[in-house]
């Protein structure tokens, strides 16, 4: 652990397009994308669960790909398009995944739900899951401690248009 410095870093200006809206932020470099969304942009739909990339509650889409925002430095995503759970509905109409989670009662406490839905949106865009086993495997980065997994899988299957 040589050469550790404790000088205060300068704030760095970055641009993000969050849910279609261009946002400019001045951030210290150690601000995660998760903290930037929640604490700087007041978008608290994205949840902080473990803060270590183990639970998936912080899942958002960066340039269309699902990532753990807790392990992403906001400054590294300067210029990126970010989609959070707040950006999925359009003109007051729920995203098909949001409607499917309601239809299938795919949550209990709800804390993991925005991460589950954003992750599922990434899953649908990837197009790699064709059956329930593949959904379970490719959603394994999203934990639900209430154990709503069967209904989560059913909701995703509905949104995929598969029985």
């Amino acid at each position: 652990m040589a050469d550790v410095t404790h000088e205060i870093a300068e704030r760095i200006p970055i641009n993000l397009v969050v849910n279609g809206v261009r946002r400019t932020l001045d951030l210290v470099p150690w601000t995660t994308l998760l903290d930037a969304l929640r604490d700087h942009l007041a978008l608290t739909g994205t949840k902080k669960g473990c803060d270590h990339g183990q639970c998936g509650a912080c899942t958002v889409l960066v340039d269309g790909r699902r990532v753990n925002s807790c392990l992403t430095l906001a400054i590294m995503k300067d210029g990126a398009e970010i989609t959070t759970v707040e950006g999925l509905a359009s003109d007051g109409t729920l995203h098909p995944l949001q409607q499917a989670f309601i239809d299938h009662d795919a949550f209990q406490c709800g804390y993991c739900t925005s991460g589950q839905i954003c992750s599922a949106a990434g899953l649908l865009a990837e197009g790699r899951a064709a059956d329930a086993d593949e959904i379970r495997e490719l959603m394994s980065g999203n934990l639900c401690r209430c154990g709503a997994y069967p209904n989560i899988v059913a909701a995703i299957q509905q949104a995929m248009g598969r029985p």
Binding site: M1, V4, T5, D51, H52, G53, L71, M76
Partner: peptide, 29 residues
Amino acid sequence: NPGARLIAGGTNLIDLMKENVERPSRLID
């Protein structure tokens, strides 16, 4: 920058930094 670390995906490094196991003086993106 002898205390610097490279960062790409960051999935392991940022986790270790949160745990104070890694304490880089600079990240080189």
